[in-house]
Amino acid sequence: MPLLDALPFGAGVALAALIGLILGSFIATLVLRWPAGRALGGRSRCDGCGRALGVRDLVPLVSAFVSRGRCRTCGARIDPFHGRVELVSGLIGVLALAWAPGTTGWLWALFGWLLLPLGLLDARHMWLPDRLNAVLAISGLFLAGPMLEMSLLDRWIGALAAGSLLALVAWTYRRVRGGEGMGGGDPKLVAAIGCWLGWQPLPLVLLLASLGGIGWAVVAQRKGDRPLALRPVPFGVFACTAAFAAVPLWPLISAR
């Protein structure tokens, strides 16, 4: 990416933030509409009065701030989920380009932007769509080599090893416990993550994801009344978070 590599540090961070905010608006719409069976295309409309939203209503973060979080026509409250996702997506771009200006940073940002809708859909609906997993996997095989300097072979091995390991865990749980212990999308997600990271960082990813899942389950158990064994854990949320964190952590751990 010669053109992006040539950007000054501040310009790169600002551009990544802007791209993140714009993508965050689309990601929020996708997460809200897709599970409800609503079309992803077409004009955005107010959920209260159905008015088609114009450009001044769709500026990430700014429009909601100016309108105080309400529709200018009917006064209906705008779901704050939009602004939160836009902010997180923008921060992904800022963090990535501040940490690694140039190709590595842009690839890390792209990785984060692809992981974000998967993590949100799993958190809200316990759903990891095959199509999003496929986009993550294919983009990783084609683009991710320079991010951690992993060869295509390493990334193929990572995909096959990670997917097979989690599929085996899910199969073993069904055989031993007689029920589903892991959703079908989790092995596919971790396989797609392997397409980006290669096989070497995957133990770190699985360790961080498992610790995050265990911590979440323990906290949720203290706040609720369902037994821990019966409480579903959105493992995809923790796998996405761990995969994103592994990009800067792995070079530090593996440095000699």
Results as ranks from 00 to 15, higher is better:
256 R>D: 14
227 P>I: 04
109 A>Y: 05
202 L>S: 10
58 L>V: 04
228 L>W: 12
51 R>C: 03
61 L>P: 02
75 G>P: 06
202 L>M: 15
150 M>P: 00
114 L>V: 08
52 A>K: 08
166 L>W: 09
219 V>A: 14
245 A>V: 10
216 W>H: 05
67 S>E: 07
209 A>G: 08
182 M>V: 03
26 F>Q: 08
141 L>P: 01
217 A>C: 04
68 R>L: 14
226 R>M: 12
26 F>E: 09
120 L>R: 05
211 L>P: 05
41 G>R: 07
73 T>D: 15
59 V>G: 06
172 T>M: 13
125 H>W: 10
223 K>N: 03
220 A>N: 05
109 A>W: 04
204 L>K: 10
11 A>T: 13
102 G>H: 10
180 E>T: 09
232 P>Q: 10
65 F>H: 07
214 I>W: 01
222 R>E: 01
210 S>N: 05
64 A>G: 04
227 P>M: 03
69 G>F: 07
78 I>R: 01
239 A>L: 15
79 D>V: 01
5 D>W: 02
213 G>K: 01
168 L>S: 15
36 A>D: 11
212 G>L: 00
146 P>D: 13
152 L>R: 03
227 P>K: 06
139 S>Y: 01
252 L>M: 14
59 V>T: 00
161 A>M: 12
177 R>S: 14
152 L>E: 11
135 V>I: 15
68 R>C: 09
92 I>N: 02
77 R>Y: 03
234 P>C: 08
150 M>V: 05
110 L>H: 01
127 W>H: 11
115 L>F: 06
136 L>F: 06
118 L>W: 10
52 A>F: 07
185 G>N: 12
233 V>D: 14
233 V>G: 13
209 A>H: 03
35 P>L: 03
65 F>S: 10
93 G>M: 10
99 W>Q: 07
201 P>K: 04
241 T>R: 12
105 G>Y: 07
170 A>L: 00
41 G>Q: 07
42 G>Y: 04
147 M>D: 05
155 R>A: 02
195 C>Y: 06
176 V>Q: 13
38 R>E: 13
92 I>H: 02
87 L>G: 00
6 A>K: 02
100 A>H: 12
241 T>C: 15
204 L>S: 07
166 L>P: 01
228 L>F: 11
54 G>T: 07
158 G>H: 00
97 L>S: 08
120 L>M: 09
120 L>P: 11
35 P>C: 01
180 E>A: 08
94 V>N: 03
102 G>C: 09
203 P>S: 14
183 G>S: 09
247 V>R: 07
105 G>W: 03
2 P>V: 03
220 A>Y: 00
51 R>W: 12
232 P>F: 11
182 M>Q: 11
181 G>W: 13
94 V>I: 15
110 L>Y: 01
102 G>Y: 09
196 W>K: 10
113 W>L: 15
82 H>Q: 00
186 D>S: 09
152 L>P: 00
107 L>Q: 04
151 S>V: 08
256 R>T: 11
30 L>C: 14
200 Q>E: 13
126 M>S: 12
230 L>W: 10
